[in-house]
């Protein structure tokens, strides 16, 4: 095992060096100037040039690259000139909200999808089955930003039950935290719940057709026990697999929902950083994602 880990780590090194080079070149060759963004639209050429010089952006690209790489190797991902904070702190701050959102969305999606899937399987070919099938199709088809806006219109603007946007960390209380996360989590989780409904329904139907279920029925087992104890347990394997796979999909989809609900997550940070050409932040985020992907591959 030790050997395997060491081997994996060693193979990671050239990959990460290549990734770092590609990220750096992509970011620096994209048109846009952080100094101009930092000084505002009315800054004159000379003022922008002076700041570029002070920030080291006029140095040759290889010098800038090795300066950044040196920092990364020492564990220093740099500092954002826009946010005026270290990258490690910025990343930590922005990882919490999307994780909370994804976890909550996943829980809501599973709680919504599994019972509906069982109901659809139970009433196969009848009206409830059709209603659930339509619901799951709507879930799969509807973009999260559209659902988010509709939810805001209904629950925030019309009914005034939930806040329209924002994020409150758990440290300020679970109640507030969940209140602010409910709408974004529904908007995010509804798509995946469609998939989960379909998966639950088909898994349950397969199990319900099996001999041991017929035997249990013949023995006179109650319907509730039959579904929960005998059928669902065996049908859970593909359902749990889908739920697990949904986590990464939801985490990626959180970017859009973050924007609609103004949640300060990694997605919003990335978008803002790209728009203002905050080189250090873009490089650090892409590197973090690359390390995660390479490690899990």
């Amino acid at each position: 095992m030790k050997k395997y880990i060491i081997k994996r780590l060693l193979t990671l090194i050239p990959v990460l060096i290549l990734v770092s080079l590609v990220i750096f070149m992509l970011v620096h060759l994209t048109p846009g100037d952080p100094a101009a963004m930092l000084l505002g639209d009315q800054a004159k050429d000379a003022e922008i040039a002076a700041l570029r010089e002070k920030m080291g952006f006029n140095d040759p690209l290889p010098v800038q690259y090795f300066r950044w790489l040196g920092g990364v190797l020492r564990g220093d991902l740099g500092e954002s000139v826009f946010i005026n904070d270290s990258m490690s702190h910025i990343l930590l701050e922005h990882m919490g909200p999307p994780l909370a959102l994804t976890c909550f969305a996943l829980v809501l999606a599973a709680l919504f999808a599994v019972p509906l899937g069982i109901l659809a399987a139970k009433s196969r070919g009848r009206l409830p089955d059709s209603i659930v099938s339509v619901t799951s199709m709507v879930g799969i088809s509807m973009p999260s930003f559209l659902l988010g806006l509709l939810l805001i219109l209904l629950f925030a603007v019309k009914l005034k039950w939930l806040p329209a946007s924002g994020y409150v960390p758990i440290s300020q209380g679970w109640g507030k935290h969940l209140k602010y996360l409910t709408m974004p989590a529904i908007a995010l989780g509804f798509i995946e719940s469609g998939l989960m409904i379909r998966m639950t329904r088909s898994a349950m139907l397969e199990v319900l057709d099996s001999d041991y279920i017929r035997a249990a029925r013949a023995k006179g087992v109650s319907l509730f026990t039959l579904f929960t104890k005998h059928a669902l347990r065996n049908a859970l394997i593909p359902i749990v697999t889908v739920i697990g796979q949904s986590f990464m999909v939801l985490l990626a989809g959180a970017t859009v929902v973050e924007t609609v609900f103004n949640i300060p997550g990694l997605g919003q940070l990335t978008v803002n950083s790209v728009l203002r050409r905050d080189y250090e932040v873009i490089q650090a985020i892409v590197l973090l994602i690359s390390v995660t992907m390479c490690s899990s591959a």
């Binding site: 930590l92 994780l99 909370a100 994020y167 440290s171």
Partner: peptide, 21 residues
């Protein structure tokens, strides 16, 4: 671990968020 990370997302002080109601 997951909720510890979630808690990192903001300040620990009260009433200092954009949503201080």
């Amino acid at each position: 671990m997951a909720f510890s990370l979630c808690a990192c997302g903001g300040s620990s002080e009260k009433n200092d968020t954009p949503a201080a109601e």
